Lab assay of single mutants.
Amino acid sequence: NQASVVANQLIPINTALTLAMMRSEVVTPVGIPAEDIPRLVSMQVNRAVPLGTTLMPDMVKGYA
């Protein structure tokens, strides 16, 4: 099963992502692949992401 990127904390809108904000977890539906975590660092979210939410490509500016 593919691990996805999950929010490790509440991430406010327009926040630049850091490693501490993300974790890898096997979830359904599948979100951004966990191997993309290094690429996500310093990218901004375009909405508030609650703790435990799977990051989807449309939630991260410049990812999709």
Rank of each mutant, 00 (worst) to 15 (best):
N1R: 02
N1S: 15
N1V: 15
N1E: 15
N1M: 15
Q2L: 12
A3L: 10
A3N: 09
A3H: 10
A3E: 14
A3Q: 05
A3W: 04
S4H: 02
S4P: 01
S4N: 01
S4D: 00
S4R: 02
V5L: 04
V5G: 02
V5W: 00
A7G: 03
A7Q: 01
A7R: 01
N8I: 12
N8A: 12
N8Q: 08
N8K: 05
Q9D: 12
Q9Y: 07
Q9K: 08
Q9P: 00
L10E: 13
L10I: 11
L10W: 10
L10Y: 07
L10P: 15
L10S: 12
L10C: 14
I11F: 01
I11Q: 01
I11N: 01
P12T: 10
I13V: 12
I13L: 15
N14T: 06
T15M: 09
T15H: 12
T15G: 05
T15P: 01
A16I: 13
A16R: 06
L17M: 08
L17P: 03
T18G: 06
T18I: 09
T18K: 06
T18W: 03
L19T: 15
L19V: 13
L19N: 11
A20H: 13
A20T: 10
A20Q: 13
M21W: 03
M21P: 01
M21Q: 07
M22W: 02
M22C: 03
M22A: 01
M22R: 00
M22Y: 01
M22I: 12
R23D: 08
R23A: 09
R23M: 13
R23G: 10
R23V: 11
S24D: 14
S24K: 05
S24W: 06
S24E: 12
E25I: 03
E25W: 03
E25P: 00
E25Q: 06
E25T: 06
E25L: 04
E25K: 03
E25Y: 04
E25N: 13
V26K: 03
V26I: 12
V27R: 06
V27A: 10
V27E: 03
V27D: 02
V27G: 03
V27P: 02
T28Q: 10
T28N: 09
T28P: 02
T28W: 03
T28D: 15
T28C: 06
T28H: 05
T28E: 15
P29S: 08
P29Q: 07
P29A: 05
P29G: 04
P29Y: 06
V30W: 05
V30N: 15
V30A: 07
V30Y: 09
G31R: 02
G31M: 02
I32K: 00
I32F: 03
I32H: 01
I32L: 05
I32M: 04
P33Q: 11
P33R: 07
A34Q: 06
A34T: 08
A34P: 05
A34S: 11
A34C: 05
E35S: 11
D36W: 05
D36H: 09
D36L: 10
D36Q: 08
I37V: 14
I37S: 06
I37M: 14
I37K: 04
P38I: 08
P38L: 11
P38M: 11
R39P: 02
R39H: 14
R39M: 15
R39Q: 05
R39G: 14
L40G: 00
L40A: 01
L40W: 02
L40F: 02
V41D: 04
V41H: 07
V41F: 08
V41P: 03
V41M: 11
S42D: 11
S42V: 04
S42F: 09
S42L: 11
S42G: 15
Q44P: 09
Q44R: 08
V45M: 06
V45A: 04
V45H: 00
V45Y: 00
V45E: 01
V45C: 05
N46Q: 15
N46D: 12
R47I: 15
R47P: 02
R47N: 13
R47G: 05
R47T: 09
A48G: 07
A48E: 15
A48K: 05
V49T: 11
V49H: 02
V49G: 01
V49A: 06
V49K: 01
P50T: 06
P50A: 10
P50Y: 10
L51T: 13
L51M: 13
T53Q: 10
T53V: 10
T53P: 01
T53F: 09
T54H: 03
T54G: 03
T54M: 04
T54W: 02
L55N: 01
L55C: 01
L55A: 01
L55E: 01
L55D: 01
M56H: 05
M56G: 09
M56C: 10
P57Q: 11
P57G: 13
P57D: 07
P57I: 06
P57K: 09
D58V: 08
D58A: 05
D58H: 06
M59L: 06
M59C: 05
M59A: 10
M59T: 09
V60L: 08
V60H: 00
V60M: 07
V60C: 02
V60N: 02
V60D: 02
V60Y: 00
K61R: 14
K61I: 14
K61M: 10
K61E: 11
G62N: 11
G62W: 08
G62H: 11
G62C: 10
Y63L: 10
Y63S: 03
Y63G: 03
Y63D: 04
A64M: 09
A64G: 13
A64Y: 03
A64K: 13
A64I: 15
